[in-house]
Design a protein around this nucleic acid. Sequence first.
DNA 1: GAAATCACG
DNA 2: GACGTACGTGATTTCC
Length: 944
Amino acid sequence: MAEKQHLYLVDGSAYIFRAYHRLPPLTNPEGTPVGAVYGYTTMLWKLAQDLDAADGPTHLAVVLDKSSHSFRNDIYDQYKANRPDPPEDLRPQFPLIRDATRAFSLPLVEEPDVEADDMIASYALAAQRAGWDVTIVSSDKDLMQLVSEKDGARIDMLDTMKDARIFIPEVEEKFGVPPHLLGDVLALMGDSVDNIPGIYGVGPKTASKLIAENGSLTAALDAAPDMKKSKLKERLLEGREMAELSRVLVKLRCDCPLPIAIDDMKLAGIPPEPLAQFLETHGFNSLLKRLEAGAGSPGRTTNLDPAKADMQGAPASAAGNAQPLPEMPPVDLSAYECVQTMERLEHWIARAADARLVAVDTETSALDAISADLAGISLALGPNDACYIPLGHGGSDMFADTPQQVDRDAAIQALKPLLESDAVLKIGQNIKYDINILARHGITVAPVDDTMIMSFDLDAGRSMDGIGGGHGMDELSERHLGHTTLKFKDVCGTGKKAIPFGEVPLDKATPYAAEDADVTWRLHAHLAYRMPGEGGVRIYQRVDRPLIPVVAHMEREGIKVDRAELARLSETFAKEIARLEGEIHADAGTSFTIGSPKQLGEVLFDTLGYKGGKKGKSGQYSTDQSVLERLANDGAPIANKVLEYRQLSKLKSTYTDALQEAINTRTGRVHTSYSLVGAQTGRLSSTDPNLQNIPIRTEIGRQIRKAFVPEDGNVLLAADYSQIELRLAAHMADVDTLTEAFAAGEDIHARTAREMYGEVTRDTRAQAKTINFAILYGISRWGLAGRLGVEADEAQAMIDTYFQRFPGIQKYIVRTLETVRERGYSETLFGRKTWFPRINSKNQAERQGSERAAINAPIQGTSADIIKRAMVRMLPALQEAGLGNVRMLLQVHDELVFELPQTDIAAASPVIERVMADAALPSVTLDVPLGIEIGTGASWDDAH
DNA sequence: GAAATCACG
DNA sequence: GACGTACGTGATTTCC
């Protein structure tokens, strides 16, 4: 029997309207707007690429509206009458949609006097009659009428923007009736966009209820006279005629003549040449590169990673698309405007809306986004085309005049539509900060691009000659623009004499603030230009960019800590510290600063004369934990006391004291700040305070975790990836023994012990665990020897055994190092690069250090990618499950912490588990399952 | 501001 | 023949 045919019908006209509103204002090299065309092209690409997929197309055609007039206008002259003209910069894109379709060599259907919907209906039913499956690529609710299954041939829909399949249950869920009754519902409720009247006062809810109860529109209208007296009854009686007219209007014509036979819509390989030409003409360089990389057409090539078409999360940004690099004149600080009236503000807002790409920077009174006050906002629309809008300036001198400025709340109301518009891309340097500042003024800034993160995704780990390897704006400006920015300290001063930005006079504030926005705009142009050619698009668009609002939101949530509990602990610790101090001084026979490693070393090794003091390169004795533990074993009672003293001082100063200070006075919670560019591997880092290193390993430290608590009625839920890095190592090195052990849910360290030593005892398991971790970090015989307390050759023998037992691991290490040496960077499964500029260094220590980091980076980085993907999907998944009260508070590398009502635990746990376990999909299918461990409780400690 | 130490994954 | 030994972070303290 022949394979089943599957026809995809693309509703091209509807798509470009949606693409237009979701995509940034890209232009081709000639300056013609092509944002929507780009979106359309990527969609076709993705569809064509699914040619060999299980449910992919065997046949494909695009259907477009030919003219604005159709037979429906003859029936009802008001049909679609109140539709506004398409936006100015969309109009030139309509003909380009045809060009794009032809470039893919796809059949195109355009018929006069009927709408695209009618042609789609006619084709869909014809194909279904022939026994084919049909997928309509659209999200138009009218087309949902066609969803059906007949003799095993199904018609379904695909919304490529939401990546959602719509079949009968989805229609029923949305409208409360099966698809064949949908036309009746639509007729009753009407449609303001198409100007279909329906019945006045009847919306989707009432309409679907009436149809569901009566079985059809006619029956519903017939039943009206018998209804008990109500507003609805009157409306049904009065509106009968309009409803019947509407029923005709929403009915799809299924009998249009078919200009192209369905058999001729066969999707074969797509000739690359016309497509390449089209992509080149419009500057779609990222797609062009892919086409070339695939050495063929999207419909045929197997080189394309499905992840690249995995459009989850982010609306497109300018980064990664066609971006010619504009000419940029030198920065001119005198070119900036200080916006002091509503008229000028409106002018800038209008221009920004027109430009559809604006660099934004907020100036505030402090560095902490959760409590800092807004001092002003700067905007940039191009090089030297920038302004500063002071909103909270006034001298500290009470007698000085407050400078003229727009009323803050009025300005915020005026800026809100711009900053929230889907059609305007907001770019910022660390825009998470600005998002959080503006969130407190009721503005949800979106969509965004972030130059700091773009830089990180291109250049993580790279150090640039003399300029440094960071991603701060001043550094980026030096590196990419050769421009030295004004420094904050030159404007606000430094140290004690520093003044808040709101007290800086406007003639000094304006050049500083506007320059930041100008430089951000310029950096964005540079980085967006580099993105596609240097492989930054995938990780930026799929992982890091969609994460920005998610992390911003977590920071705003914060977590509650029990201040009284911390204070109690501080006091207990203080007493204990004082006692130990006395004893240590007595043991030493002298009073000294225990917290000074220098003095402590001298006391231990000179005054008291203990053996084994080793000085480092600074000429100082080492007194760290391992040294003190050794001394304690050799019978030095003072050593244990110092260790205990150290532990308590650490806990008190870093945690119990500092966390009390960190409680925000406004929210009563602790708000950390996450850096998305903090760790070279792609991990997040947490500062002010660091909530990623709260004690857990010792009993006394865990008391601090007990102070992290939910609000009354809630619980904390902690969800951990179990052994994720070892699982990823097993997958990436392709070690069957380990992947099978993980699949079987075995204790992986025990399994390693069995493989290496033939038996599992407490000892061999512990050794195997150490070796497993050593592998992840790039092993050396000395390092392992030190950890295990054995000689180096014994450690070497274990390493040899390990590699013999798991040859895949050794191959992975060799392979990874080879590619890093050759290309200069490592890569995660999701395409995140980390650069190792010293991998070929002549300095052995430097080189070996880089090698160890390079072995670890793909594993640690892939783990980071996975949890980031889980975070991006988490709240939408919970929302969809009706769990809007679940709050995601913290991320600790392989753990997510949530706060939720006690009553939601049972429903939320499986959703959280599923999102985390499936986070690699669909981009990457792992050979190992990702195990998730979930706990709940009345504190963070209890949740473990 | 660097160095030493130690909290976490 | 010396190097200096596990990957990735951030906060605190002391001392120069």
